[in-house]
Design a protein around this nucleic acid. Structure first.
Lengths: 118, 118
DNA sequence: GTGCGTACTTACCTTCAGGTCAGTGAGGGC
DNA sequence: GCCCTCACTGACCTGAAGGTAAGTACGCAC
């Protein structure tokens, strides 16, 4: 929720998924609820601080639901809200496009370092 | 083309549209070719430097085509490649989702500053 | 010949998202 | 008693993305 007003719907959507790990988090949460620690393992490379942070933003945006169990040791479960589920659905074509791009990239230069086509 | 290897297709797609103005640029280029100056007007707030920069990245990623006419004054036209067109198509559901979110945001608090729901 | 419009490029600067590291409090294993 | 895990929080730092302002080379209008 950084900018607003948005110039178009896409703008508004991108604002929600804007964050280094957000799509990965949303992806990981697709049809499965996760505990904080699980999520951390599911999203390789993310730190605890940033995971928490992005999770909170996602929660504020209404795409992620956070459920706290008052037990010891602490237990918190994250899941997608209906809105989040819809987001994931909307994200699917984009994922498919990216997959095709990855395949094309593979074909162009397998094992090559990233860079321009030249 | 920042990261790679991508953990999934979505990751690869987001990498392409990652940049403050890129989706807006791609959106503006949807079924219309534009000159540099037009694009600048179509994407309010972007500076020349950054527009050029993001356009070049988009070009390197194969979603935008750049056509230079050897005339004076200089003329350069940008358009979507087929891949770019597909990207736009893949982006459409996301745009629709965002539009619904914008509507919901409007309903929740018209004219309110952005922030938490409280 | 001054200034505008074309499409950039360059040097420099600011901002802030994200990363590092340390701390919290309670229970359990050894 | 010590350290581990759980799910965080806060202070501090860094790097890179993006913004600012100026320069470039050309033609045209006035």
């Amino acid at each position: 929720m950084g900018k607003q007003p948005y110039v178009c719907g896409l703008d508004a959507a991108v604002d929600v998924i804007d964050g280094k790990w957000k799509v990965l988090i949303i992806w990981a949460l697709d049809h499965q609820r996760c505990r904080f620690g699980e999520l951390r393992r599911l999203v390789p490379g993310v730190t605890e601080k940033v995971l928490t942070q992005q999770l909170r933003e996602l929660e504020a945006d209404g795409v992620v639901h956070r459920e706290i169990y008052d037990v010891k040791p602490p237990k918190v479960e994250y899941s997608l809200t209906e809105l989040g589920d819809e987001l994931n659905t909307a994200l699917r074509p984009l994922g498919a496009w990216g997959k095709r791009r990855m395949a094309a990239l593979e074909e162009a230069g397998p094992g090559r370092p990233p860079g321009r086509t030249g």
